[in-house]
Nucleic acid binder design. Structure first.
Lengths: 109, 109
DNA sequence: TTGAATACCTTGTATCGCAAGGTACTAACA
DNA sequence: TGTTAGTACCTTGCGATACAAGGTATTCAA
């Protein structure tokens, strides 16, 4: 029974959405994101996160700024761009739709 | 803005779950599944569905039986096995968890 | 100057959805 | 009997992406 596999599949597609939800609240750098998603019970690896952030940046949905750290090297804080906010609004709608779909499939006669 | 890509990514992981939800209601063959998921606004292609059904069958979550059709060749009706029901119960829990995660990320201060 | 901690990034592998194409069975009709 | 249309099942090749592992760079303290 490979439920774990399916479960991770279910979460996979949500990653991008969840990261953008996080960034809507406030700018974050990579370790922030990993930690705060972990608090929300969404596990994400470094090797997943960095390419994903780069992709969103390349697509114009994210920007970033360097900020000094009190200890250690400077950090890349990512922020949602205007296009990012628009895209996120559409993803909110997609999320609602998926919820409706599952609700429908669970309760249909 | 590649929202469509992300949107389809979000739906991807849900496919397996949605198909098992459908089969919990009643046995279906491939075209049934495609059509009924379409009614629930979840699009799935043949080339996606057949390998997925084979995988679930191989993992012991689904079984099937051949049924004659009034017109055309016989159909392979898939049904949930006992293990399938157990796995689906766990996926129900995963789904609840994902909903909580998104709710948390949307409303966190 | 060396080591530890932190932060960013890349490479290789496996999985999976999808488009396109292929095979097989049935029925209707010339 | 052949042929065509419709239905159903399945496979192949490709692209996208999560993840594990490994690599580079900066900072600070001993």
């Amino acid at each position: 029974m490979n439920t774990d596999n399916t479960k991770s599949q279910m979460r996979k597609g949500m990653l991008e959405y969840c990261i953008m939800l996080l960034l809507r609240q406030q700018p974050c750098y990579a370790n922030d994101i990993i930690q705060r998603l972990h608090e929300a019970e969404m596990i994400v690896m470094e090797g997943t996160l960095y390419p994903l952030l780069s992709r969103l940046k390349r697509d114009g949905l994210l920007g970033y700024e360097w900020r000094e750290s009190t200890q250690g090297p400077p950090r890349k804080y990512y922020v949602l761009t205007d296009d990012g906010h628009k895209a996120l609004a559409q993803l909110d709608a997609s999320w609602e739709e998926i919820q409706r779909t599952v609700y429908f499939l669970k309760n249909e006669k």
